[in-house]
C-alpha cells in the first residue's frame, strides 16, 4: 500500500516538476553520496558522472563526492533519508536502494527516497574456467545437476544480486550449487581464474581482464538480447558472440542491475526535474557512451514514469526470491 501511495506521490511530484522545469538551481556545492567504498562499481559510476559534469560545465556549483559504503551501502541511504528536504545531496546506488531494507533491519524505507534516474543496466553473465570441459551453459548445468551440492558458485556478498541470480538459476533448472560469498566481484573473478570455484555470475567489467587472458570464459548472458560490441575480445569471441541464457537453455530471460540516482524525500519537484535533466544530458555525451562501452553495460536512461515502472517490477521480482529463500529480515 505504502509503495503505491509513494509511486503516486512521486508521479505527481515529477509531473509537476517537468512543467516547472529549470526554476530551481543549486545554491551551494552539491554532494554526491556514493553507496560503495572507493573503487567499487557505484564509485566509478558516480565519479564518471562527476567528471562529465565538470568537463561539460553542466552545473555551476562544484561537486563534492563522499563515500558512505558501510553496511553494503545502507549507510549512504540512511544519510540521505536523514537529509530530508535537502536538494543538494544526490545519492548514487544500484537496486540495493530498494532491496537492502528487505534483507536487513534498517532505519530507512525506500519510499523515503525519491528516484531521479536510472542511467545504465549492468549485465550478468555465467562464467566458467576456460579449461573446464563445458562448451555451453546447457552442458554445465547438466553437470551440476548430476552432482548436486558439489559445484561452487562464487559471488559478491551475501543475499545480494549474485546470490539472488544463483537462486533463480537453481529454480529455473533444478541444479543445486554451493554459493560462496566473497568481498567483491573482483575477488570472485580471481577465485574462478585460480580454479578454487567452478563458476561465477560476474558483471562484464569484473571479469573482462581474465577472459582476455584466456583464464575464464563466458557461457551466456542474462539479458533479453545479446550484448553490443562486435570487436573480438579473444581470438575467436567478442561480447556479441555470447548467447543469451535463454538461447543457451537456461529459462531466465532477464536479470540486470540498474545504476540509480536518488534524492532525499521532501525536496521540491523542481529540484528533481533539474537533476533528471542534467543526468539526461550526461547520458548523451560521448564520454558516457565510452564508459558504457568499456564496462559493457546496457545504455538505458530511465526517469519519471518509466523509472517507477521499472523499479516496481524489479522490486517484485527480487522480493519473490527473497521470500522464497527466507532472507526477509523481520
Amino acid at each position: 500500500m505504502l509503495k503505491i501511495s509513494w509511486l503516486i506521490a512521486t508521479a505527481i511530484a515529477v509531473t509537476y516538476g517537468s512543467m516547472a522545469q529549470a526554476d530551481w538551481k543549486p545554491a551551494k556545492p552539491v554532494e554526491f553520496i556514493v553507496t560503495s567504498a572507493p573503487g567499487g562499481g557505484t564509485d566509478n559510476f558516480a565519479r564518471v558522472v562527476q567528471s562529465i559534469i565538470a568537463k561539460h560545465k553542466l552545473m555551476e556549483q562544484p561537486i563534492v563526492v563522499t563515500n558512505k559504503g558501510g553496511g553494503s551501502g545502507a549507510e549512504g541511504f540512511i544519510y540521505t533519508k536523514v537529509a530530508t528536504g535537502d536538494s543538494h545531496k544526490l545519492t548514487f546506488g544500484t537496486n540495493n536502494a530498494y532491496l537492502l531494507p528487505y534483507v536487513a533491519k534498517l532505519a530507512y524505507k525506500p519510499d523515503e527516497l525519491i528516484p531521479v534516474a536510472a542511467m545504465a543496466l549492468d549485465e550478468f553473465l555465467l562464467w566458467v574456467k576456460a579449461d573446464a570441459p563445458y562448451k555451453d551453459a546447457k552442458s554445465y548445468i547438466e553437470a551440476v545437476k548430476a552432482k548436486p551440492d558439489t559445484f561452487k558458485m562464487g559471488g559478491s556478498q551475501s543475499k545480494d544480486t549474485d546470490q539472488t541470480l544463483t537462486s533463480l538459476i537453481q529454480d529455473a533448472t533444478g541444479a543445486k550449487f554451493i554459493y560462496v560469498p566473497f568481498q567483491g566481484g573482483g575477488a570472485a573473478g580471481v577465485q574462478l581464474a585460480g580454479g578454487h570455484i567452478d563458476s561465477n555470475t560476474n558483471n562484464p567489467n569484473e571479469n573482462a581482464g581474465q577472459w582476455k587472458a584466456g583464464a575464464i570464459t563466458p557461457l551466456c548472458v542474462f539479458s533479453p538480447t545479446r550484448l553490443q560490441g562486435g570487436v573480438k575480445v579473444t581470438a575467436t569471441m567478442g561480447w556479441s558472440d555470447i548467447p543469451t541464457c535463454k538461447e543457451a537453455g537456461i529459462p531466465i530471460d532477464q536479470f540486470q542491475m540498474p545504476r540509480t540516482v536518488w534524492l532525499p524525500g521532501g525536496v521540491p519537484a523542481d529540484a528533481v526535474a533539474f537533476y533528471a535533466d542534467i543526468l539526461k544530458k550526461v547520458s548523451q555525451t560521448p564520454e558516457w557512451k565510452e564508459y558504457i562501452e568499456r564496462t559493457s553495460q546496457t545504455d538505458r536512461f530511465l526517469t519519471g514514469q518509466d523509472l517507477r515502472t521499472f523499479i516496481a517490477s524489479d522490486d517484485a521480482k527480487n522480493r519473490k526470491v527473497f521470500e522464497q529463500e527466507g532472507w526477509i529480515a523481520r
Partner: peptide
C-alpha cells in the same frame, strides 16, 4: 582500490 578505479577511468583494465 582508488587507484584501480582510476585505471578504469583512464581506460585501462587491470588484469593479466
Amino acid at each position: 582500490a582508488v587507484m584501480m578505479g582510476g585505471l578504469m577511468i583512464w581506460g585501462l583494465n587491470p588484469g593479466p
